[in-house]
């Protein structure tokens, strides 16, 4: 039961990854690609880590740390990236 749930979480995470990464291939602006990448990549990664947490609850401090650093860093990263890009070509979009 728990094993199935953890595989389900990891599978959902992989689908989120695919969904967030596929827009990278298009010929759109950086900000357009940044949005799906930051949102669904972070959600997918968190879902994968949650699945791993269900699989081996013994390693919880490590995986909780991974979840926290994912949530904090990736959000901050997307803001920094958007700031850097928008300062460069503010007349482009």
């Amino acid at each position: 039961m728990v094993t199935g749930l953890s595989y389900l979480c990891i599978g959902i995470g992989v689908v989120f990854w695919l969904w967030g990464t596929l827009p990278l291939l298009g010929d759109r602006s950086v900000l357009f690609k940044l949005h799906p990448l930051s949102v669904s990549d972070t959600l997918g990664s968190m879902s994968i880590v949650f699945g791993l947490l269900l699989k081996i609850p013994r390693e919880w401090p490590l995986l909780i740390l991974a979840l926290l650093s994912l949530a904090l860093w990736n959000t901050m990263l997307s803001y920094v990236m958007a700031y850097c890009v928008s300062r460069e070509d503010s007349d482009d979009h």
């Binding site: 990464t21 990278l24 950086v30 690609k33 940044l34 990236m81 850097c84």
Partner: peptide, 9 residues
Amino acid sequence: WQKMLAFAS
């Protein structure tokens, strides 16, 4: 910047 985005990913 597209490369940087790919690098972050």
